[in-house]
Each structure stands twice: as C-alpha cells, then as structure tokens.
Amino acid sequence: MEFRYLGNSGFKVSEITFGNWLTHGSQVENDVATQCVRAALDAGISTFDTADVYANTAAETVLGQALKDERRESLEIFTKVFGPTGPKGKNDLGLSRKHIMESINGSLRRLQTDYVDLYQAHRYDFETPLEETMQAFADIVRQGKALYIGVSEWTADQAPRRT
C-alpha cells in the first residue's frame, strides 16, 4: 500500500480507503462485513470512512466492532455529520452547533474510539451560518474528539479558506 498526505497537512492516509456506505448494516451481513474489514487490513488499508447517516448509524456500529481490537494509532478513522439520524427530530440533522456537538459523541460511542481522525461536514447546510459550524468543529478539535476537519459535496466556493 502507498500513503499520501491529506491536503497540506502532515497526516498520512492509505491511498485506498475502505468505505462502508451501503454495505455495513445494510446490504452485507455483519460477519461478511467483518471479513471485508479484515481483508482491507490484511491488504494494507489503514484508512476507514463511514458516516453517522449510513444505515441510520448502524454502519458506524459495525465498523467500530470490526476495528475495536486494532491498534488505534495505526488506523485513520473518518466519519461525517449532516444527514438526519436516530428519530430524525428537528435537531437530529444539519450543521448546527447543537447537532454537531451531539452527533460527534454518538459517532465516537458507536465507533468505540475516543477520537476520529477526520470529521467531515457531509453536505453544505444552507440553514446554519458557516461561522457557527466552523466554531463547533474548532471546539471539537480542541476537545480532541476529531483531529482534522473536512467537507463533502461542497462547491469550491462554499469551502472555507484562509483569507
């Protein structure tokens, strides 16, 4: 396996990431899901990508279970926040401070880890000021619950940049 830096950070990821969208907690039975994670580890994949919304949180649980005996420092675990989860109540979605601060805790619990390496805004949220979202992300990083922050399906113009 080869490894690449994520953006202009000093953080390396395997150039092939194992993702569990549509499979874990859904299309694939849990024992096969575990075998697939094993195969990924055996092949040198160290980076794993999931999201709270995949299979309405079940995908994170399956991945957490499959990785729980691995050395945490040898893994890069990515998850995401935005889509409606759980009972899908009025604050169970989006990029408000409330949902981000609550969702990260649920993700960490299900993934059986103290932190994720990359926490990603799964979509742009037109209903929350960008400052609110970024402040919440910054606080999560300061708390050590996530090490890096990313965005998914945002346009180049929506992505925050240093000015």
Binding site: R4, Y5, S14, T17, F18, T23, C36, A40
Partner: peptide, 15 residues
Amino acid sequence: VASAIVGASRPEQIA
C-alpha cells in the same frame, strides 16, 4: 487526490 474510497460486499473484492 489523497485517497480513493472502495467498498466491498465480499472480501475478494478488496483484495
């Protein structure tokens, strides 16, 4: 591109 995400429904697909 830092990484490409692949999924699998069978372990052989990952290999």
